[in-house]
Design a protein around this nucleic acid. Structure first.
Length: 585
RNA sequence: GCUUCCGUGGCUCAGUCGGUAGAGCGAUUGAUUCGUAAUCAAUAGAUCGUGGGUUCGAGUCCCAUCGGGAGCUCCA
């Protein structure tokens, strides 16, 4: 495949290569824009890049645009592909470029041009009558785009700013062959089956009601899962030297004014009146932890002082951002506040990074790390911010952990290291985070006695491993497609009787397993064994025990595994061995 | 919050041009007592998200509102 570069040169690249793929998708977005201009000439074009999977183009339509228009657009695109237009490239100076775009009434392009330096050389690509200001690269001819599909339409703010006009964004995908497109669409369908909202309903894990948008209910099986994660978490945190506290979810306005939340987090906090005074439901647990810290005086000898808390927090998230368990208005953060001296920054951060890595690796999660720096509405002085940001940066560098910098995305009180996990369709969600904070100890005038016998201000680390347990469960469900490992399965073993003559024996086995700590239940309905197996499979139960005449006589069980099928006959002792061996977190 | 689409029994979905709701699964009851992914039969279950409007007549058309999906903005 020939690729036309910005400097006019031609390179050879396959679709599988990054360069080829980007050019391919980018050109498809131009074909989309060309089709749109042919069909609706008054439409203004904004931008249309290739993205991680496919491409989009932002348009300003002068009519209501919906997916109903896709059919005729796709037909027009098909035509453009068949016309096999050549992509021609040229450059001009900025002044000329503005003239060209003004003549075509492309106001968004003109606005972009006006923001570029005056001496900038402007690159253009042209295919047939369609001209686009664009730095490419592009494929050389339109007819390599053998298969494409428009996927969805959505709103997107011009230049990503909600104060600007909302444009109409059309997403699409394209491939060099029809089969590849089919395969891609199949994969999307498969991924949808792993959606935690769908599985959460099917497996009876959690529920959301319109009576409480964004406030998830945990159902019996989901709560087992949540509690198991908490047990696992406690065990790790005891090992790592944390002590656990629990602080109230409602505290008075003065506290939130001291912490800065009342000013910086006001629109996200739910408030209430108690005896006529303002109170707020906590959106974070840190101020409560601060009160506990300040109850008594502390020495550097106690540091690092690691105080953990499973904090139930509430935040008024915008309705449009809610998403199953991933984005909710009420969740439990596996929080901890760690008080340290400046010398302890590096080691403590590294320890936490290791802990997070241990947990994520244990579940087989892939993750990426971001360093988020000072946001616009922050508190504190430049010096502290720089020290904190460098502290995090140095820790990451010395761990040789790859990360990207997320400029201006830190908390209002400090920079942070964020750990992002992927859901079933590749969207990433921030889970773990480590935040270095010089401000809150300042606001609360927290102190410790140093080696020199004088009072000093401690540094505070805020950190979560799961992030929110809700979101983490969402990721878990999608990662395992509902097939949890044995230790996390709400029901680990289902005992299926072949007829009700064997129910007593089945119940005896149930008691034996329960005494050994396994979660199991008997399916004693008067149904055929095939049907009971089907039910248990659909519930994604890891182990099924089939109980009939043979088993009762031999005092055995027939074992069936969720993914491996029939394991044959064995004694209860053998079964317990297998179960115990597998049942580890 | 914004753009756009969607909202029919517990679940998944059908319902033509407006003519007064239908299937499968599930549930319940009865029969069946069965060997590794669906036994048979019967019964119950819906004022079609909610509130207005147009119309002789609205699940179907219009408006508002609530909830949901996709994305944007925001964020654990």
């Amino acid at each position: 495949m020939k690729i036309k570069m910005k400097d006019g040169s031609i390179k050879e690249a396959d679709f599988e290569e990054e360069l080829g793929k980007n050019a391919f998708w980018h050109t498809t977005s131009h074909i989309l824009a060309q089709a749109i201009k042919r069909l609706y000439p008054t439409t203004k074009c904004a931008i249309g890049p290739s993205i991680a999977e496919g491409f989009y183009y932002d348009f300003d339509f002068d009519f209501r645009f919906s997916e109903e228009h896709f059919t005729e657009i796709e037909a027009q695109m098909e035509k453009i592909v068949k016309e096999n237009l050549q992509l021609k490239h040229f450059t001009t100076d900025r002044k000329k470029a503005i003239q060209i775009m003004e003549k075509r009434e492309e106001t968004y392009k003109v606005e972009m041009l006006n923001d570029l330096p005056e001496n900038e050389e402007i690159s253009f690509y042209q295919q047939g009558e369609y001209l686009e200001m664009c730095s490419g690269p592009h494929v050389a001819y339109t007819n390599v785009i053998k298969a494409f599909k428009l996927l969805s339409v959505a709103g997107a703010y011009w230049r990503g700013d909600e104060k600007n006009k909302m444009l109409t964004r059309i997403y699409g995908i394209s491939f060099p062959s029809k089969d590849m497109l089919k395969e891609y669409l199949n994969r999307l369908e498969e991924a949808k089956k792993r959606d935690h909202r769908k599985l959460g309903k099917e497996l009876g894990l959690f529920a959301l009601f319109e009576e409480g948008p964004g406030f998830p209910f945990f159902l019996p099986k989901g709560l087992i899962l949540k509690n198991l994660l908490i047990d696992y978490w406690r065990k790790l945190h005891i090992r790592e030297g944390y002590t656990e506290i629990s602080t109230p979810i409602i505290l008075n306005r003065q506290l939130w004014e001291t912490s800065g939340h009342w000013e910086h987090y006001k629109d996200k906090m739910y408030t209430t009146l108690i005896d006529g005074a303002d109170f707020a439901i906590k959106p974070m647990s840190c101020p409560g932890a601060m009160l506990v810290y300040k109850m008594e005086s502390h020495s550097y000898r106690e540091f690092p002082m690691r105080i953990s808390e499973l904090g139930l927090i509430h935040r008024n998230e915008k309705s449009g951002t809610l998403h199953g368990l991933m984005r909710v208005r009420c969740c439990t953060q596996d929080d901890a506040h760690i008080f340290i001296t400046p010398e302890q920054i590096q080691d403590e951060i590294k320890g936490i990074v290791h802990l997070i890595d241990e947990v994520y690796s244990n579940f087989g999660f892939k993750y990426h790390v971001e360093l988020s720096t000072r946001p616009k509405n922050s508190i504190g002085n430049d010096e502290d911010w720089e020290m904190a940001t460098n502290g995090l940066k140095n820790a990451l560098d010395s761990l040789k952990l790859p990360y990207i910098i997320n400029d201006g995305d830190g908390a209002f009180y400090g920079p942070k290291i964020d750990f992002h996990l992927e859901d079933s369709i590749g969207r990433t969600w921030q889970c773990g985070t480590i935040q270095l904070d010089f401000q809150l100890p300042q606001c609360f005038e927290a102190e410790y006695i140093g080696k020199d016998g004088n009072k000093h201000r401690p540094i505070m680390i805020h950190r979560v491993v799961f992030g929110s347990i809700e979101r983490f469960i969402g990721i878990l469900i999608e990662h395992f497609a509902g097939k949890f490992p044995l230790w996390l399965s709400p029901i680990q073993v289902k005992i299926l009787s072949i007829s009700d003559k064997y129910i007593d024996y089945a119940k005896k086995i149930e008691m034996t397993l329960k005494k050994e700590g396994f979660r199991c239940e008997v399916d004693g309905r008067s149904e055929k064994i095939g049907y009971k197996i089907r039910t248990a499979q659909l519930e994604k139960t890891p182990y099924m025990l089939i109980i009939g005449e043979k088993e009762v006589k031999a005092n055995h069980v027939s074992v069936r595994k969720r993914d491996d099928g029939d394991l044959g006959n064995m004694s209860i002792k053998q079964l317990l061995e297998i179960l115990h061996k597998e049942n580890i977190s």
